[in-house]
């Protein structure tokens, strides 16, 4: 099964909501851009029943090039983490697949 993409989501909005293709494409694009902009502004994003996108500031720490064993410092950074909501977790938990 191939991955769900922005094109698939836009197609779904086109078919089920009756938006034209351009509108559908734009709304999908601005949805993800809105989340990116908020996170870029150091603002947590909470999507009810889906999950939260949180920000974490990491201190610098010593790292290592696993190939050469050479020590390289890992700089301090800000990272995004996703914490799935209860509803999403419950829906996904019971997946019994063949893979």
């Amino acid at each position: 099964m191939s991955a769900l993409t922005k094109a698939d989501i836009a197609e779904m909005l086109y078919e089920e909501l009756g938006l034209n293709k351009r509108e559908a494409k734009e709304i999908v694009e601005s949805f993800f851009e809105e989340i990116r902009s908020a996170l870029e502004a150091n603002q947590q994003v909470k999507l009810s029943s889906f999950g939260n996108f949180d920000l974490r500031d990491k201190c610098s720490r010593p790292g290592r090039n696993p190939k050469t064993g050479e020590e390289i410092p890992i700089t301090a950074r800000r990272v995004v983490t996703f914490k799935p909501g209860q509803k999403l977790k419950a829906k996904v938990e019971s997946y019994v697949g063949t893979e």
């Binding site: 989501i9 779904m12 909005l13 089920e16 949805f31 029943s49 889906f50 829906k91």
Partner: peptide
């Protein structure tokens, strides 16, 4: 509605 449907399709 579109936002709800996008999240639903992702779920």
């Amino acid at each position: 509605l579109a936002v709800k449907m996008m999240l639903d399709s992702m779920t």
